[in-house]
Nucleic acid binder design. Structure first.
Lengths: 233, 233
DNA sequence: ACGTTGAGATTGCCG
DNA sequence: CGGCAATGTCAACGT
């Protein structure tokens, strides 16, 4: 064959959607077989292939992840990967076959648990320590905003740093904020509390050495309390 | 409204495929946002919704699993589930919108690793222990067949039980076989070896207490050796 | 019905 | 760069 083999799907192409009556066989980590039925075959731009039925949201019945190579003949598709795993799709009838250029995917932005934690704790600072009242979220200092500034039951200032995972650099960050806040006569002396879902032993030790309190909070419980409040009224 | 709300997707409908320029927001366990881009929206017969880009095989960018309810307006889809999680798809442009009746899915048949392991080890019992020679696969006893019966280098009988995962009940099963096999003067005394990809500590302890050997085998390696043999000739 | 466990997991994070 | 843990884990099986 002199001309390039167009049956080989390379990365960067459009998404291809095929609805076909087919059987599917996978041989790799395990062997699996799908009897003859109508299914959706999805070939993504990156070359990966997945076989969907109209159930089992969202997981496909079978698939082949990149890196892999698709040899798509009229009656049979064979997808192989470097590990020697194969996905063989034997096609009886094609009901639909479309290609669509999808363009770039800007990517998923997960609004981290940290932001949400801050929201929840701003709404209920007493979950950190009894009697704590919020002064301001994102209280500004000249080296950046501290997550929460509160006053305790005795009216003393408390700076709170919130992390998803409590590690040593989070404690150091809080120490820097505390230095800055202590320059303000209206706040001084400012106590620090480091809050996270889990605080690593190293961070706990450093915090203790710096006179900073540590509080581990349960995210689900906080969310539960929060929704609990919402549903009460 | 007197007529039924057709914008509500119930289970049992056809599969719907939409390619649309859209933004997507998920609020539930976490919050996530997808900027405006062209994506594939898949609505399965069971009502589940998933949002695919043309990368990240096979996992969708966002999804909502059953049980859930889809309210599909022209500009916005809102999928909710009983836990109060929401998936909101705001549609700018629709590039494709098809529905297709998929019919029944006969279901996936997984040919277990255990059967394949037995095949591979029957072909190469020396992978279990040097000098081991196969007498018979599925050697019958009156309480069921033992996976492999072998003879070691000294001609002594060895009964082998093969599991994908070595747990305590697999050891007990082998113990029962050994009792039976020991009744046969032509075999007695019969040694036992428990073979699995991984053997749990509890099972190892019990095996040791019963004088049964434990061998962990690497499935991929065995397959490799096997295909190695096949490709050598 | 509920808890336990495995999964062709994938993905991020840490050391 | 390789091992470990989390995942919006899900799904299947045993109690």
């Amino acid at each position: 064959m002199a001309e390039p083999d167009r049956s080989v799907q390379q990365n960067g192409g459009p998404m291809r959607l095929v609805i076909a009556t087919c059987t599917v066989d996978y041989a790799g980590r395990l062997s699996a077989h799908l009897p003859l039925a109508k299914r959706l075959l999805m070939v993504k731009a990156d070359g990966s292939v997945s076989v969907h039925s109209d159930g089992q949201a969202y997981k496909p019945l079978n698939w082949m992840s990149i890196p892999c190579e698709l040899r798509a003949g009229p009656d049979q598709w064979v997808v192989t990967n470097p590990k020697g795993e194969t996905l063989t799709i034997s096609i009886e009838v094609v009901h639909l076959d479309i290609e669509h250029e999808m363009g770039d995917e800007p990517g998923l932005r997960k609004d981290g648990v940290e932001a949400h934690l801050q929201e929840l704790l701003a709404a209920r600072p007493e979950a950190i320590a009894a009697g704590l009242k919020l002064v301001r979220r994102e209280y500004p200092t000249d080296i950046g905003p501290v997550d929460l500034l509160c006053r305790d039951a005795e009216g003393r200032a408390v700076a709170i740093e919130i992390k998803r995972r409590g590690e040593i650099d989070g404690v150091e960050q809080l120490v820097r904020y505390l230095e800055r806040l202590d320059l303000d006569g209206r706040l001084r002396p400012v106590r620090g509390v480091f809050v996270a879902q889990v605080i690593k032993p190293q961070a706990q030790v450093l915090a203790a050495a710096r006179g900073i309190g540590c509080v581990e909070v349960d995210y689900d419980e906080l969310r539960g309390l929060d929704t609990g409040r919402l549903t009460l009224f």
